[in-house]
Simulated scan of single mutants.
Amino acid sequence: MTISLRHARVRYGPLEALHGITLAAPARGLTVLLGRNGSGRTTALRALAGTVALSGGAVVWDGVDVTRVPAHERARRGLCLVPERQAVFGSLTVRENLELAGVARDFSAALDAYPRLKTLLPRRAGTLSGGEQRMLALSRALLAQARVVLVDEPAQGMSPGVAADTYELLAGLDACVVIAEQRLPPVLRGRTALVYELRRGTVAFGGEAAELE
């Protein structure tokens, strides 16, 4: 297992969002965190990334406790978080956003994945539609060649066809990929994917996608 939460607790003031949950994502492959709004799925992603602090438990990555390792250091070590909101720099152009991924000026992997971005390179990211911003955010994750990719609702705002391609893309990455969704996307049914269903900050189910069905 590449990255895991072990008996993790997270508090927002007096409210506890995660009640000692344990889950683990494999080194290569897709893990899906399911749950309604308020279930804790987004908080679990943020806890793995280090953008929220644990009030109890641990985050373990490749057998090492990284609970106290800050988010920027986890990113430097190969972890990439694509949040649901504010995932791109709106005042910068699409090209500048891609350049921030740190791969010189070779955007071929991103533009092959999302050809629509080719015509948008000079546009400011803040002027793009919601679906286009998701494409850009995911493209930056592709270019970063991260070992762990965490994505909150990856296909939000996308057309059904682009959404299906996005899930196929994420499932095919040579990385540990964890996505958070309200429901299991149809394109992932029948695929080999590890699924955790969260309810009110606890794990209600953990197993293969086919078992959930």
Results as ranks from 00 to 15, higher is better:
residue 108 S to I: 09
residue 156 Q to P: 00
residue 119 T to A: 15
residue 186 P to V: 12
residue 122 P to I: 02
residue 23 L to Q: 05
residue 26 P to N: 06
residue 42 T to L: 07
residue 86 Q to P: 02
residue 135 M to Q: 15
residue 111 L to S: 03
residue 96 E to V: 06
residue 142 L to E: 04
residue 139 S to D: 07
residue 187 V to M: 10
residue 133 Q to A: 11
residue 196 Y to W: 00
residue 137 A to R: 11
residue 103 V to W: 09
residue 26 P to G: 08
residue 136 L to G: 02
residue 77 R to C: 01
residue 163 A to Q: 07
residue 47 A to I: 07
residue 164 A to E: 15
residue 41 R to K: 15
residue 81 L to K: 05
residue 45 L to I: 01
residue 155 A to Q: 05
residue 30 L to E: 09
residue 205 F to W: 09
residue 160 P to E: 13
residue 104 A to W: 02
residue 170 L to R: 13
residue 1 M to Q: 13
residue 91 S to H: 11
residue 212 L to K: 13
residue 105 R to V: 01
residue 12 Y to H: 15
residue 17 A to W: 05
residue 84 E to T: 00
residue 99 E to L: 14
residue 4 S to T: 06
residue 112 D to T: 14
residue 129 S to A: 08
residue 188 L to R: 13
residue 117 L to Q: 11
residue 18 L to A: 03
residue 131 G to E: 02
residue 163 A to S: 14
residue 180 A to K: 08
residue 52 V to M: 13
residue 63 G to L: 11
residue 171 A to H: 12
residue 113 A to V: 10
residue 42 T to Y: 12
residue 158 M to I: 01
residue 6 R to I: 07
residue 91 S to V: 00
residue 136 L to T: 02
residue 144 A to W: 07
residue 24 A to I: 00
residue 71 A to M: 11
residue 210 A to H: 15
residue 41 R to H: 04
residue 87 A to R: 12
residue 196 Y to T: 11
residue 26 P to V: 01
residue 37 N to V: 00
residue 169 L to T: 09
residue 164 A to P: 01
residue 201 G to L: 09
residue 111 L to D: 08
residue 209 A to G: 01
residue 12 Y to E: 10
residue 158 M to A: 05
residue 198 L to D: 09
residue 191 R to L: 13
residue 21 I to E: 10
residue 9 R to N: 12
residue 150 L to M: 03
residue 133 Q to E: 09
residue 58 A to F: 06
residue 13 G to P: 13
residue 199 R to S: 09
residue 28 R to Y: 02
residue 210 A to W: 14
residue 62 D to L: 10
residue 159 S to Q: 05
residue 5 L to H: 05
residue 58 A to I: 08
residue 130 G to F: 05
residue 87 A to Q: 12
residue 28 R to I: 13
residue 87 A to K: 06
